[in-house]
Design a protein around this nucleic acid. Sequence first.
DNA 1: TCACGCAGAATATGATCAAATTTTCCGGAG
DNA 2: CTCCGGAAAATTTGATCATATTCTGCGTGA
Lengths: 219, 219
Amino acid sequence: MGETAVAVTGAGIPAHERVYRRLRDMVLFGELAPGQPVTIQGLVEELDAGMTPVREALRRLTAEGALDAMGNRRIAVPVLDPAALEELTEARIALEPRLAARAARDMTAERVGGLRDIDDALDRAIARGDVGRYLHENHRFHAELNRFADAPILTALVDGLWLRFGPSLRVVCGQTGTRNLPDRHKDLLHALEARDPDAAAAAMQADVEQGMELILQSL
Amino acid sequence: MGETAVAVTGAGIPAHERVYRRLRDMVLFGELAPGQPVTIQGLVEELDAGMTPVREALRRLTAEGALDAMGNRRIAVPVLDPAALEELTEARIALEPRLAARAARDMTAERVGGLRDIDDALDRAIARGDVGRYLHENHRFHAELNRFADAPILTALVDGLWLRFGPSLRVVCGQTGTRNLPDRHKDLLHALEARDPDAAAAAMQADVEQGMELILQSL
DNA sequence: TCACGCAGAATATGATCAAATTTTCCGGAG
DNA sequence: CTCCGGAAAATTTGATCATATTCTGCGTGA
């Protein structure tokens, strides 16, 4: 068919991967509101991609629980009810303290330093009331910590959980601002520095409980 | 384009869903060996489906961890190393006992009866040395139990874990037969009947530990 | 109120392009 | 003369797109 428009194949990364990462961030950091419908053609226009890559990215996100596939082939951002939130809390408490304990086991001074830097940036974001930045740094803190746990399967499970409450967390922060967001990362950093798995697990559980309680209060 | 063959659109279920379920079962019950490459075009011929539905099903399975996407756009059945198996064990122990406890909370006589029926069928499969049937009934027992827990998110997580060790479990059973497969479901049924969450959780943990130990021994 | 059709969106197909693996073939070293 | 790399053709496989087909939802009119 001669001169097919043929956008120059971007870089090495496939289009469906690029769309997936973009959409993932949109969910994770609350650029999409809970309940908001997500259409293929809408994404095709907005992200300027083909239909097939968008389709595949959506399929992947729904498989991870980041998006909700209604029976009648519509897709929407999940709305959390109290029961779902309770489940998410139980799952996080079951998994994330174990990751923190693993990370504590072979923690290094350099790693603690990196985490402390992220936590400082997080504090500054809170002080400035920069909600978006807070969400990013908070996620980066946990993602980095999980990376140190060297447990890809457990980490994948937890990443999926974060995708599920990302949109709702954004709503909470949008309502209350960053005022009431004391971070419990200080105890955690202390436990990590001491390479104390049990203390790290306990601190992580406290952080999770507090964060989820915050979401629960906003129903 | 005139006379395209036009396969009669099956029933209400979409093609990609049908392909997904089929592939999921193939992974779950070990019809695919660990390490075996999975190609799109191969599935297209074998399952007699279009390319797009197969693609989407594969994307979904890889997102769930049931299949492994190598860097160079190839897909294969994951091979478990000891580290991965240890992670899977930790994840199962973190999650499945909690599901058992939830199921125990509002257990009914009818539900226990259903589970006992499945367990009987499981015993008969062991006695006959019917590996395939054993795997199916064992999965059905746990799936049914998880259904009673009424916790869709936790159940989805656990289903993903089962997909990860399905192929390897099949290998183990294929090697050793059903001889050394005593099922720990008796204690579990007893605890469920008594509606004792803690006892159910403990029994489930024992079942998980034994099952994973079996896989570990085969490396 | 309910049936019917119409618009719009999702699903599925086959063609086409790009990338990676496999095969083949050749030259040099032993 | 045989055998072992290594490069390049050839084949297989994956990615993307344009398009046809089907389904869902909604508005319209009886």
